[in-house]
Design a protein around this nucleic acid. Sequence first.
DNA 1: ACCTGAACACCGTTCAAGT
DNA 2: ACCTGAACACCGTTCAAGT
Lengths: 203, 203
Amino acid sequence: MTAPARPYHHGNLRESLLQAAEKALESGGIQGLTLRQLSRELGVSHTSPLRHFSNKQALLDGLAIRGFERLGETLSRAVKHRGQEFSARLTRLARAYVGFQAKHAALCGLMFEAKHRPEAPRELLEAGERAFSHGPAIFAEGQANGEVAAGDPARLSLVVFAALQGLIAISTNGKFKGVSLDILVPEIIARIIVGMQPCSDER
Amino acid sequence: MTAPARPYHHGNLRESLLQAAEKALESGGIQGLTLRQLSRELGVSHTSPLRHFSNKQALLDGLAIRGFERLGETLSRAVKHRGQEFSARLTRLARAYVGFQAKHAALCGLMFEAKHRPEAPRELLEAGERAFSHGPAIFAEGQANGEVAAGDPARLSLVVFAALQGLIAISTNGKFKGVSLDILVPEIIARIIVGMQPCSDER
DNA sequence: ACCTGAACACCGTTCAAGT
DNA sequence: ACCTGAACACCGTTCAAGT
């Protein structure tokens, strides 16, 4: 029996690179994320990363894909409890989304920038769509319960996520004109939901 | 009479740098924007830019400030006609905002990134606020005409701009799931406006 | 299969010097 | 006041070579 699948000098460099890259991103921004610096930290030669990622952008894409996967898990947990009424679930989802972005600001910036490129790999686009799929899901369930007006759940969900995403983009340091996002998020959700309620008093 | 205020080797390098930088940004993205490359194009030494901007970030900030100023002018033109009804004006404003971002995508990315930094200069933050001031303005006028429900105009405007900003961020290549922003923008505006109309049938 | 080291063509920034 | 040139400490990527 030969030695197990233990690579040459490191453990599994690909995984270590992604972890170190994310740490570097959170602490020093995209500026501090350098293949050579990563190599130094992991004690390998400065060309080793190119064995696992064909270039720097490929590593960034890998980081973005994992980011979307974790975002998806976070949103999934937020909408888990099916017993609640629609507006409560949507607010939980919105808070989870904004919270994730606040916690991983640099990573989220990278995620959307990576997704925007025309040459973005299919895997990345799919990871993004999976992460956002929890929105349409609860809208569809809300419609099934008669809590939400008819319409394409994906489009209804888009309005909410767009508003949240824009709120984050426009705000500075988690605030807009001194008002915390914790306060603005439910306010915005409430305002948008009004336009999505089924017409109980048709005339 | 001595020679007029004609600088040493160039015309006015500061202005030329900003123009060349914006051109480089639009054509090659932030990647292609390099002090040394700019210097080469303008035929000056590679350290000349540092005479006018203390470092690269200062030049990027300058670019962002001008970007916000031009955005403000664009939005100002969009809301000029006071005779129209509120919803038409808001839709024009929204289209102008999305159009500007579509036309100057890389610049807009830079603008918001620059504004997000904790060390962003005061001048930049003020330019940003001025650009967005046209939103609250038409909301206030809409309220004066009885077309919009009561509430802080800045907060009402925020909901709309956040939704637009997020729509741009979430979409890829000007589309979301194959649907053009030209279609989605008025749809979103219409959906949000519903929640802002004054209660004509109070009970 | 995986890693290394020299080499190449770039960067931003500093600093003493020039006109 | 404005610009230059050498120098420093970095980059990403290629490529022949090693185990």
